[in-house]
Every structure is written in structure tokens, then in C-alpha cells.
Design a binder for these strands. Structure first.
Lengths: 252, 252
DNA sequence: TGGTTGCATTGACAAATATCAAAGGGATAC
DNA sequence: GTATCCCTTTGATATTTGTCAATGCAACCA
């Protein structure tokens, strides 16, 4: 882990790493969604190459000057916020096609840390240039707004989770969310590897790692999932969904 | 309350309600921030008039088609999300100069409800036209992005609160946040009226209303605040801030 | 003005989750 | 290949918050 910190001092842009939205199989999930071929190639020219990160490396840190947003090309990230008083909250996990770094726009400084949870690859999208291009291409401008808005809506969902659900409901919602996102990327919705630790899941869900572990075990005992360390197989998706039923379920 | 629902069926645009950013004393807090006089008058022409709402009225509801964002001109709002399974989460409280409705951009449909908690007034900002103008006025475009980004950062702060703080810490953070926002608007940071019920505070903070009430009482017993129903006076701001000190405070 | 209704407070108890502690299992580094 | 370290699991107990219930307070309506 300390080794990674050291490597991270110099931002490792990989100039040879060719990226082209038009060739990318994530284009339907990512920023170029809905662009014409012509507009997409203009976006291609803007994108400042790719960058590879090893597991554990930071893509950016809170306090770094904001210059670009990032599109995850491959791999898996977490973002987290640290406060002066020592609190640490994981605010999200990002996978291929998802956009990172929009928190930095408001203060021109990143407000959270983004860390690769496995060897990963991102596209750099310089923000000043993206704004310039998006004033020319209306559909790009609108899609950028949609991406930012989607992040706001996603955050509201997390607030709902943290504000109204109990431990097992939170974990069920989390697993179903991962399942759905893997599925959208062509992976199995039922079987996947968790890239994060129990502690990171707990931080995201507002629980202690022991509580997360116990909930996993309970789900397994109940035949909802099969779990071994980081490998998860969802056996009973409807059963998991049923856990999210209303707290006043007997009434409704 | 039912009377309000009825009134709300017809959106009450108030055509006579003159609004002009250039004359508005909220312009430093609101969307026109940083615009030249000339650009501000272009924004003025775009703004589709104002709308007045009585306490309890909805500005918009989840499911409504998205057309505009709104700037709070006067008054006080809450936003909340309802799920099919009957959960209800207050996602924010908005006061003068703050922007409402950005959740609707992503799906072209509002995803939450916005309700006036006192008689209020908003400016309508038609979003299609705002995008058109912002492709011409770079500073407007950039400021819009900052406003959306600020919302994302704010949401991360709420996640931190919900994920890592205990009941009294949450309430202290909430009161300090209100205090700071009232202060920024020229009101007393120490004495204000809460526009929302204990239940709404609880929903926002992920607590039951009884827990909120007990925390208020405890703060009063400890001489941190003086509270009588909805009237709050903060007696000891540093004391409240100290409550947010690290959970591992003995160590650090 | 008096009653009604909704909101707030408080108490006693129950339930959920955190904390502390110990031990086992895998992955990683040497 | 083996030792180490980190992650995970599980148990016993403590703490926090929720639930249920009763009462009080205040504003609003008739």
C-alpha cells in the first residue's frame, strides 16, 4: 500500500494508450451516448489519452486541483471522503462506463479520493475543453447534464438507503445494485467477485464490517446467496428483492 | 393540507410576478453569480416569471415531466423521495438562492417531491432555454456546472452524516449547517425558526422523531441551545462544533 | 372561546447494531 | 514453499436507537 502511494506522486498518463469513443464498447453507457459519428470523433480528439492504475493507486485525492473528469474504461474504483475529524465515508463504487471526478467542478479542487480497487484504466476528459466542445454540440452538453443529474439521483438513492433501511436491507440493496450493473455490462447478474473489503462495504452502507459479515452469513443460511470471501453467487434474486419490501409490509 | 393538494392541480404561474436577476439581492448566491450586467439581462429574459406557493403546496412531484429548474426567491422548501415500498426520505431543505429540480434532468422526469414549508416564491428557469443560453455564455455554462457539482458535494456530506455520525452528532451538524446558511443570507446565525417538523428533521437525518426530540432536549440541558418548539437559539456554537469531534477523539 | 387536531416531549422497554475479542483462511511476499 | 499479514468470521456483551404509549402544548377552526 505504501509502495502505491509512492508511485502515485507522479501522475502516470500513458500516452501510448489509444482511446477512441467510437471504438469503445462502453459508448452506450458512457459520455458519448447519443452522439453522431462525426460528433463522437470530435470528442475522441478531446480526450487526453488513457491512464492505467494498479490496484490501490489513487486516481486523484481530495485537495488535488480539478482539471479533468474520468471515464472508467476497465476496472473498479471507490470514492471516499475524509473529514478533519477522522471520519471516512465511501461515497461510491464505480465500474466501466461510469464517470468519476464531477465533485471537483464546484471548487476546482477534488473533494474526495478515487482509488482503483483492481488494476484499472480510465480515459481523461479535460473539463475546460469538454465545456468548449459541449457549447458547440448540444447533444453532448445535454448528455453531460444528464450524467451529472444521474449522479445526484444516485446520491438520493444512497441517502434513502442510509436513512431508512436496516442492515440486511442495505446489503440486499447493495447486492442487487451490483448485480444490475454487472448485468448491464454483459456479465453475470448472479455471480461476481467483490472488489472491495467488508470494511469498505460497511463504510458505504453505514455499517461496521462485522455487521456486513453477519448479514452475508445470514443470507447464506437463508439460501439467498452463496458467499465465500469475495466470491458471491446470488441464488434467489426475488428473495433478496423481497427483503426490501415495506417495513409496514403487513399493512400494504 | 387537502386544500393545498387541490390548488396544486393547476400549476400557478404568476405572470405578473416580475423577476429580474439584476435587481435580486440573491444574485451572489444564485445562478447569475459572476455574470456581466449584459449577460445577466439575457438571463433575465429567459426566466419564465415567478411562482408563489402557499405553505404545504408542491412545487413539483415525483413523476412530473421535467421542464424547468427553480431558484428559491423567498421561503423554504423540502425535497423528499418516496419509494414503491413506502419509504420516505427527506433529501434536503432549500432556502433563498438555492436551486431546485436538477434531479429531473437525467430522466426528463422529476424523481422527488418539492414542497414549500412556508409561503414561498421561486423563479422558473426553463431548462432547454438555459442550455441554449449557456452554450453562448461560457461563464453561465460553467456556473451551472458548478451548481450541479455543489449539489453532488452536498449530497456526499449528507452521506457522511448518515453513514458515520450518531444521533446527537447529526443534529449538531444539522443545526450548524442551518446556522451557517441563515448567516450567509444576513439572518442571525444564532436564532431562527425551524420550518420543518421533528419528523421531517428525523427523516433527513435518518432518525425517528422521538430521537430528534430527545437530542434537542439534551442539547438544552447541556446549555448548548435553547429550544422551544420550532424556535431555536444556539447558545454555544463552539460547544456544538465540539460534538462533531472525532469518535476517536481521545487518540487524536 | 372552546374544542379539535397535529406536533412535541418524555418514559419504559425492546430491538438493532456496535464493540471487544479470538480464531481461522487466503492471498501475497520473500 | 512457507511464513506473514490482512481479511473474514463468529461469539459475548454493551450501547444506541427504535417502538409503544401517555401526556402536554399550541395553533387553528368553528
Amino acid at each position: 500500500m505504501h509502495a502505491n502511494v509512492k508511485q502515485n506522486v507522479v501522475p502516470l498518463i500513458t500516452p501510448g494508450l489509444k482511446v477512441a469513443c467510437s471504438q469503445c464498447n462502453l459508448r452506450e453507457l458512457c459520455l458519448p451516448f447519443g452522439l453522431s459519428d462525426d460528433d463522437m470523433s470530435r470528442l475522441d480528439h478531446l480526450i487526453g489519452g488513457g491512464r492505467k492504475l494498479k490496484r490501490g493507486q489513487h486516481l486523484y485525492r481530495a485537495g488535488d486541483p480539478f482539471e479533468s473528469i474520468f471515464a472508467v474504461r476497465a476496472g473498479f474504483f471507490k470514492t471516499d471522503v475524509l473529514t478533519e475529524d477522522g471520519r471516512d465515508q465511501v461515497t461510491g463504487f464505480q465500474m466501466a462506463g461510469e464517470i468519476l471526478g464531477m465533485d471537483g467542478i464546484s471548487t476546482e479542487t477534488h473533494t474526495c479520493n478515487a482509488v482503483a480497487l483492481e488494476d484499472s484504466e480510465v480515459c481523461l476528459i479535460p473539463f475546460v475543453e469538454l465545456e468548449m466542445l459541449s457549447s458547440e454540440i448540444h447533444s453532448l452538453q445535454h448528455h453531460l447534464h444528464k450524467v451529472m443529474s444521474r449522479e445526484i439521483v444516485r446520491d438520493h438513492g444512497v441517502m434513502m438507503l442510509l436513512g431508512t433501511m436496516r442492515a440486511e436491507e442495505r446489503l440486499a440493496a447493495f447486492l442487487l445494485n451490483l448485480s444490475q450493473r454487472f448485468s448491464a455490462r454483459g456479465y453475470s447478474p448472479a455471480e461476481f467477485h467483490l472488489r472491495m473489503t467488508r470494511e469498505e462495504i460497511g463504510s458505504y452502507l453505514g455499517l461496521k464490517l462485522e455487521t456486513v459479515s453477519r448479514a452475508f452469513s445470514r443470507f447464506q443460511d437463508e439460501g439467498l446467496i452463496s458467499v465465500q470471501q469475495k466470491h458471491v453467487r446470488i441464488v434467489d434474486i426475488p428473495g433478496l428483492k423481497a427483503l426490501l419490501a415495506p417495513p409496514d409490509g403487513r399493512i400494504g
